[in-house]
Design a protein around this nucleic acid. Structure first.
Lengths: 141, 141
DNA sequence: TATAACCTTAGAGTAAGGTCTAAGGTCAAT
DNA sequence: ATTGACCTTAGACCTTACTCTAAGGTTATA
């Protein structure tokens, strides 16, 4: 049975974060001492580590909540339920990458166009390009 | 002289957003009617469009503030001042892309490992992988 | 017994970039 | 003169994922 600071040390998440996750239903302590101290058993620790792993991969807390509800009752869920969440996340990540690559290419073009030296910015080609417009938005979500 | 809704229509930003940007020093109306209505002249419009362009590219509002302060006094700034901001933004974008590509590859591996079918999740290889851990964080900023 | 180091809670604050509301004033047309 | 569309402000609210604070209770050690 671990106290919150021990679970924090073990998982690399702060005690604050663990309490925050508890408030959001992601982790919990099966037991409490008489004084109200949280005590985490092995199953609690595994659940907390599952959360940490999912978070490391990049799942949102909401995604993790869904994964956890599958985890506690695997028999009632299919592999498709799991891949749906995973694929949805992958789609989001791919969309964000595209958006960033568009920014990347624009920024690179701007940098390539400018001398970047100590010359006065009165003739700076980056400033001129910004003045001109002509850049479409990198399409938010 | 445009009223705020006219500038909004012209730039594709909402009147709310224009007021918000004004509060943050990015745009402003050179004139006000007696009743306090904002009136934007040609220079104001060009500045607003500059902001829109920079935002489309992906610059933060703080970056845009810096670009604007160069813009209003180009003689006191060098091309290097401009490329510094641009390169810094490019570095950020590149870092974020790397992080997302790491997530992307993990998610793809997970998807490839799972049948994704109607089988019960009791043997789901994605769930197993999350249970195992072994994924390093995609290193936030 | 006293001190440090831990724990508890509710709730506020942070970043970033908006978005919206309330309560009210203004303007053009009918 | 009265609609309806527009404008003003301060300030609250949104998202996501924490992070911290205040005020107080507990536990272990010297």
């Amino acid at each position: 049975m671990l106290k919150i600071s021990e679970l924090a040390a073990k998982t690399g998440m702060s005690a604050h974060t663990l309490r925050f996750y508890e408030k959001n239903g992601l982790v919990s302590a099966s037991d409490r001492s008489e004084a109200g101290y949280r005590y985490y058993n092995d199953a609690d620790v595994r659940r907390a580590e599952f959360v940490k792993t999912a978070r490391n991969i990049g799942f949102s807390l909401e995604d993790i909540g869904q994964l956890l509800s599958i985890r506690v009752d695997k028999k009632s869920h299919s592999c498709q339920d799991v891949t749906d969440i995973t694929r949805h996340k992958l789609d989001e990540v791919n969309a964000k990458i595209s958006e960033l690559q568009s920014m990347q290419s624009t920024l690179q073009i701007l940098l390539d166009s400018c001398c970047g030296g100590p010359e006065k910015a009165t003739q700076c080609s980056i400033m001129d390009a910004l003045e001109e417009g002509e850049f479409r938005a990198a399409e938010e979500n």
